[in-house]
Design a protein around this nucleic acid. Sequence first.
DNA 1: GTCTATAACGTGATAGAC
DNA 2: GTCTATCACGTTATAGAC
Lengths: 192, 192
Amino acid sequence: MTRITDTREQIMDRAAQLLMSRGFNGFSYRDISSHLGVKNAAVHYHFPAKADLALALVDEYRQTLRDKTSEFMAYGGSALEQLKGFFEFTSRQCHTGRCICPLGAFSIDYSELPEEVRRTTADFMNETIKWLTQVLAVGREQEEFSFSGDPGPKALLILAGLQGARQMARINSLEILDDVLKQIHQDLGIVT
Amino acid sequence: MTRITDTREQIMDRAAQLLMSRGFNGFSYRDISSHLGVKNAAVHYHFPAKADLALALVDEYRQTLRDKTSEFMAYGGSALEQLKGFFEFTSRQCHTGRCICPLGAFSIDYSELPEEVRRTTADFMNETIKWLTQVLAVGREQEEFSFSGDPGPKALLILAGLQGARQMARINSLEILDDVLKQIHQDLGIVT
DNA sequence: GTCTATAACGTGATAGAC
DNA sequence: GTCTATCACGTTATAGAC
């Protein structure tokens, strides 16, 4: 009934949850195993070293982004729709668990992560930047929203703003994320 | 020759450095003591528990902000000057050590911090928000810069953007922070 | 694939000499 | 105010039985 990879997926899910709520150094194999009702050796079977787990997590995030954006990147489409989907995803994720952005979490421990994890994390971030830059460029061209200056730095400010807002929201209140999202909308001339 | 509190200050300095480069859970008493050439018991003498160290650090940040902004908050002044000072401080701090914002660092471990540290951290953040909100309001009134909408959410976006940019910069390159700063300037209509 | 058992180590923290 | 010595604990990780 249960698939062979079931435990592996459960480990990934729990690890993702913990990463976004405590940072990569803030959880242990025990936190994962006890939650699943298994022993820590079982987790080590699927991910021998913690770095393997980190790599799998980043890879998963990257693949998710690719799946959600590949069509847009290849053939274009409605930029506003892409943008709204991204904002809603972020907002929903944050409202259920007050979790922070995985990139933000990894950035803290970045200097101590293995080279391969660092490279994959950087790749993931650069792909995200590239995607949003194109969304902004296409959306402005299609007059779905407006802003002045290059799309690149604008994309950076939006991504950085969301990442920071999620962290600030957990110290203060989720209202902060909502306010920042509204401000981003306003600065893009999007009517809500 | 050396003051009584000399070691205490050195501990604070090193701890601040470590906090901003590895997060609160990313460094140990040993990291501090070995750097100063003392034993970890000496550090425990000045800060019995790690929470005491966290509290002292947040308090120091808060006091620094108060010192730098109290005059403006009380009597007003040039908002542009305040803003530039803040940006330069952030930029300089980031360019020497690629360190992240202390608030960002604490936000990761926030759920496990003692209540008193949490409260002080939240106070510090709220004071920062309040200060920047007033700077934006006054600056727009004095026509030093311009933007549409309420100063509050605008202040949040700027602070969140800086916090996120510092983290992204460490994964990619310091150029990201520079780009974000330029975009913020542009969105405020400040000519550079 | 999961278990028990254990190794090897780093951590925050304390007691008591100097 | 700093030291030596030590504790109790959590951590990642491995070996080998089932």
